[in-house]
Nucleic acid binder design. Structure first.
Length: 472
DNA sequence: TCGGCTCGCACTTTTGAATGGA
DNA sequence: ATCCATTCAAAAGTGCGAGCCG
């Protein structure tokens, strides 16, 4: 089964072993694919996660803090990749802050159009992505459903987790969406809020976010002394340094630190938690035969993340899952992730690595319409879910396939208890792809420098019928 | 009445243009 | 003429609190 006791150092760029040759395919699913992603500043993320991360969302868009900074390894140096991230609902609940803890306040709001943020440097060669850590600093979150700036639209008082995609693609104009890997980091989950509910989170942000230094009072750190261990304090002290340059060589600085789950998940109604736990276990049993390509990357200590790769297809109205559910509801319109970009987040710097290859600016206003077909364009074989964990699958594409390309096979997904994620958005058939192009409303429209794709209204799963849908 | 949201404020960092010197 | 470092103002990001709204 899964070997979750691997020291996290194994995943760091510099020390990773060649798992493809030294480990049996099923030994460590999230290492099967040679592509590895590490979360930079994971300690900072965990500091927030331990309290219950909250992210402010505003009408005009708010940056995330901490922001997502990842390291990549195992990419083909001269192959182009597109990096994307989307915010995936963690569960199907709406929350409220009640007496110092998060309580479930009912069913989640209907899903909003899912926007996938494409890293503005995409596409770029693997060597470029691996050269330094990749920052998603400029992602902006909004609660404005009519947002025209391409920000990621979220519901307040709902929980999300960023999911990263690494897609082999020559350019945004000819994306090979079949070759992708996805990664999630449990400690990056957060609750979207319009105002901070937990004062500890606000103080932690003030302590770490340089923009908020103006609110740093004498008492701002006092709570730390009873919230964190001396180790945490030392770590927090180190992390108080000024923000690093946007793209710096990654230094994961991984330590072997126990992963602590956020108390807020425990603080919930015990009966609710028990119910969820039971459901998750049941789902786990149900889904043994399925896997997504997602790799749930554990924290420093993987021990806390029990192998769990179940995906609640029916219950979770994930934008990503909509397509799959739709497959059993042929009359509905499929959902395709919208594409969110950030105005002004354009790469102007010159980089020999990148300049040496053919690339197009992601926000090029005249994005060809065929691009909108790409995100879900998979061979028919992808219609079904990937096989059992540990198998590699032949991939299409016009890149020479060397023996190491086996690593492109989608690895299994490793989830952890207490959190389940929807399936990936790219499981679909060509038929559905066709429907996408037919059903999208107005193709894509552009505002300023933002390329935004608005497909038809994704189906709403906000009804009981959806709860019974199961993947075939 | 209350929970959630919006807006303006003061403060900070970041960014880029302007300037001057080598 | 070019390059580099410095300066400075504008832009952008931040949490807080008052007030609004359903």
């Amino acid at each position: 089964m899964l070997c979750l006791d691997q020291p996290f150092q194994q995943f760091s760029r510099n020390k990773r072993p060649n798992m493809m040759t030294t480990s049996p395919p099923t030994a460590d699913p999230y290492l099967q694919a040679d592509i590895r992603m590490t979360l930079e500043k994971s300690d900072l993320w965990k500091s927030f996660h331990n309290i219950g991360t909250e992210m402010i969302i505003t009408k005009h868009g708010r940056r995330m803090f901490p922001h997502c900074n990842i390291g990549l390894s195992g990419l083909q140096p001269y192959t182009n990749y597109v990096l994307m991230v989307e915010m995936v609902p963690v569960d199907n609940f709406r929350y409220r802050w009640n007496k110092g803890q998060w309580d479930v306040a009912g069913k989640a709001e209907p899903q909003l159009p899912c926007r996938t943020y494409i890293h503005p440097d995409s596409p770029a060669p693997g060597s470029y992505w691996m050269k330094q850590s990749v920052s998603f600093l400029k992602i902006k979150l909004t609660n404005n459903t009519l947002d025209q700036h391409g920000h990621i639209i979220l519901h307040s008082m709902h929980r999300y987790v960023p999911r990263f995609y690494v897609v082999q693609a020559d350019s945004l104009h000819s994306v090979h969406w079949g070759h992708f890997h996805s990664f999630s980091f449990p400690e990056t989950s957060f609750t979207a809020v319009t105002a901070y509910q937990n004062t500890k989170i606000a103080k932690l942000k003030i302590d770490h976010n340089p923009f908020a230094k103006g609110f740093k009072g004498e008492n701002s750190q006092s709570y730390l002394f009873y919230t964190f261990s001396p180790t945490d304090l030392q770590r927090a002290k180190l992390e108080c340094e000024p923000a690093e340059p946007r793209r710096t060589l990654g230094s994961t600085g991984k330590e072997s630190v126990a992963v602590l789950f956020s108390p807020w998940t425990i603080e919930q109604d015990p009966s609710q938690s028990q119910s969820l736990h039971t459901e998750l276990l049941e789902l786990h049993n149900h889904r043994q035969d399925y896997s997504t390509e997602e790799q749930m990357v554990p924290g420093h200590s993987s021990r806390s993340y029990q192998p769990y790769r179940s995906v609640e297809y029916g219950r979770l109205p994930s934008p990503s899952s909509a397509v799959e559910v739709c497959e059993s509801r042929r009359s509905c319109e499929p959902h395709i992730p919208d594409v969110a970009t950030v105005p002004g987040h354009e790469t102007t710097k010159s980089d020999p690595l990148r300049d040496g290859c053919h690339r197009h600016h992601p926000m090029v206003p005249n994005m060809p319409q065929d691009y909108k077909l790409s995100p879900v364009h998979l061979p028919l074989s992808s219609r079904t879910y990937p096989g059992p964990l540990g198998y590699s699958y032949p991939l299409h594409g016009h890149y020479p396939t060397d023996p190491s390309m086996g690593q492109w096979g989608e690895g299994g997904a490793v989830h952890y208890p207490g959190q389940y994620l929807p399936p990936l958005p790219f499981h679909t058939s060509q038929t559905q792809t066709t429907n996408h192009s037919a059903n999208q409303c107005g193709g894509y429209h552009l505002g300023n420098t933002v390329a935004e794709w608005s497909w038809s209204q994704y189906m709403s799963l906000d009804n009981e019928a959806d709860l019974t849908v199961r993947p075939q």
